[in-house]
């Protein structure tokens, strides 16, 4: 059984249907990427998994238990944590306070400093800037902070929404390096990306989303070699 399974997921915004029965699964210790064009439904899928959107139909199962009817905070405490798109950090709080906030669901006082230490090991840059206001960090640092904050909750599955969005190429590399390192430490990740080339380089498997449906899936290598993918998303003719 997969760690996270999405079955026949339908989501609509009012009258407009956005997802028409998305199916995907993420196994333990895997990076799975969801690629597709603008408006294909990538972020909608993530928001429906994390409970920020309520699906019309379908199941989101973590370890065989359906989460689709739970409110977002309960989904977080069960171990599905989303790092929102566009680096939503608490701009007026310091780096350290942001991380503490990420551990809101963590019970036990000793656990939080321990996890902060882990995040600092993963992102030494954040340790240097821990007393600084998050809003004054650079774009790349804010993305690191958003990811670190997500890790504070101790996720079983980390949902990353467009981590490379709006970053300079050098920083994109850094962010994907971090994703690789998280993977090597055993974190399970569902990664949504427009940058399909980079996403497929770090991922084990991938799904291609088109107008609210999964049109293609396979291992990252298969997708990279697939003609339609190469043409539509990797810019190779």
């Amino acid at each position: 059984m997969a760690l996270l399974e999405v079955r026949n997921l339908h989501v609509s915004y009012g009258q407009i249907a956005a997802l028409h029965g998305v199916e995907l699964e993420v196994n333990e210790r895997e990076i799975v990427t969801l690629i597709g064009a603008n408006g294909a439904g990538k972020t909608t899928t993530l928001n429906a998994i994390s409970g920020l959107l309520r699906p019309d139909r379908g199941l989101v199962m973590l370890e065989g238990i359906d989460l689709s009817t739970l409110p977002p905070h309960q989904i977080v405490s069960r171990g599905v944590v989303q790092v929102p798109e566009g680096r939503h950090v608490f701009a007026r709080l310091t780096v350290l306070e942001n991380l503490e906030m990420g551990g809101f669901t963590v019970r036990g006082k000793a656990e939080i400093p321990r996890r902060i230490e882990q995040v600092f090991e993963l992102f030494p840059r954040l340790r240097e800037r821990r007393g600084q206001l998050a809003g004054t960090l650079s774009g790349g640092e804010q993305q690191m902070l958003a990811m670190g904050r997500g890790l504070m909750a101790g996720p079983k599955v980390l949902l990353l929404d467009e981590p490379s969005m709006g970053l300079a190429p050098v920083l994109v590399d850094t962010i994907f390096d971090t994703v690789r390192r998280l993977h090597s430490q055993g974190t399970t990740i569902l990664l949504v990306e427009q940058n399909a080339r980079m996403a497929l380089q770090v991922a084990d498997r991938g799904y291609v989303l088109q107008t609210g449906r999964v049109v293609l899936s396979g291992t990252a290598a298969e997708l990279q070699a697939h003609d339609a993918v190469r043409e539509a998303y990797l810019g190779v003719g």
Partner: peptide
């Protein structure tokens, strides 16, 4: 308290607060 931190998170960014496991309601 924990309550104060939850309010702070909701005030600063309600959506992120929810993503952090804070029960907004």
């Amino acid at each position: 308290s924990r309550l104060g931190r939850a309010w702070l998170a909701i005030r600063e960014d309600e959506d992120v607060a929810a993503a952090m496991g804070i029960n907004r309601v």
